[in-house]
Write a protein that binds this DNA or RNA. Structure first.
Lengths: 214, 214
DNA sequence: CTGGAATGTTCATGCGGTTAACTTCGGGCA
DNA sequence: TGCCCGAAGTTAACCGCATGAACATTCCAG
């Protein structure tokens, strides 16, 4: 996330992007509250008001960072799933994928607390129902989509209550999201890596057992 | 939470409390970010800097609000548990208590989103391990303590893995906490009351099934 | 009484968001 | 080719907030 450098011209040439990079850096360092318009401008070497040529204000800058952070989160989940062995065994594949995605989610939160918090700062787009709208869905909540699809695949094997599916996905999301926040920001933030692992695994067990029930 | 009124004397008489009430009102209305020193002082009818005679600064005021909010949260949980019928049947009592506490938790979050968010704003005291330290524990994280004890009672019946107990409590907490945030602040905030109920129940089912496993 | 400790007040500083008015550049059109 | 306009930056200024310093008013203990 190094700012794109340009000559010392009056016109920057790529200010919008440079500001986004600076803002992402800020969020990475200290979370959404540290995303400050003036500071981003300072880092890029431009006057504070220049940012207004490219963003509606701090709010839009922050929303842009949020989008970036959500993409990173989803990417981390997919990386974790891809890294997962055992995708060959079709019997276990579904469950392994779910747990891998969840580990990727929590792992991202723990390793990038600032970005993770930024991913859920200002209220973004909301869903009307946690249902399995497959086709497009907003790319915004990609993390949820990944999780939901994996859970459907898992439930598809067993015989789960039909109406319970989307709610189950929401429950799983709740678990990993809540766990992440407790670990990053909350009362569990001081857990040793080992204990943290134990809690993560317990949560995953809960999610999987819940998927079987739901 | 009405401010304690006093005559128009130079000395307020109970400024600290009045400021706390005003700050709690602010948090109730708009969450922790709306807890602004100057506004609280304004509402109490006092100059902004007067607050510094009673608080170290905005931070301490906010921390005081947080403590208040956490107490309210725990109280709401206990009310919900007390309201729960079926405490007579010892076989179901434990499970019912767990679900009632969780419903109380989420219910408080949904009904008092501002206060709920304030309860987890600035990082408060953290636990070293999510273990069943029975005796005192910090009264801060009372909500967690309530949940943990109820889960222990539940697990005490079945034969759960001994080491898994505290981690199970953390997992359950993660679920209700995450669900609350998604409903209050996050992508699930637009769910109708009915759908919300479905998601809550699915999450509770997951928590209970997880307690059986853990 | 009276003097100091509490408790409030007024000023002043610095930061961050945002708007208004002015400046510089780059590129398309006469 | 040269000029002019609009995009992209700049400076100046306003407002609200947190906070510190110095001053004012009360209250109460001795």
């Amino acid at each position: 996330m190094a700012a794109t450098s340009a000559g010392k011209t009056y016109h920057h040439g790529d200010l919008r992007n440079a500001l986004i990079c600076a803002a992402v850096d800020l969020a990475t360092e200290g979370g959404p509250e540290r995303v400050v318009l003036r500071e981003a401008a300072r880092r890029v070497g431009v006057s504070p008001t220049a940012a207004y040529r490219h963003f509606d204000g701090r709010g839009e800058l922050l929303r842009t960072v949020r989008t970036h952070a959500r993409r990173e989160l989803a990417a981390a989940m997919e990386r974790a799933a891809a890294r997962e062995p055992g995708a060959d065994d079709p019997g276990l594949a579904a469950e392994r994928r779910v747990t891998a995605l969840c580990r990727g989610y929590v792992g991202f939160a723990v390793e990038q607390p600032g970005l993770y918090r930024a991913a859920f700062c200002v209220p973004g787009p909301a869903v009307d129902e946690p249902l399995p709208v497959r086709p497009p869905a907003e790319p915004e909540i990609l993390a949820f989509t990944l999780l939901r699809e994996a859970l459907e695949a898992l439930a598809g094997q067993g015989a789960a209550r039909p109406g319970g599916r989307p709610a189950t996905a929401a429950a799983a999301w709740s678990a990993v999201h809540g766990l992440s926040l407790l670990l990053v920001d909350g009362p569990l933030r001081r857990l040793s890596a080992q204990r943290r692992g134990v809690v993560v695994e317990a949560t995953l067990a809960m999610v999987v057992s819940g998927a079987a029930v739901g």
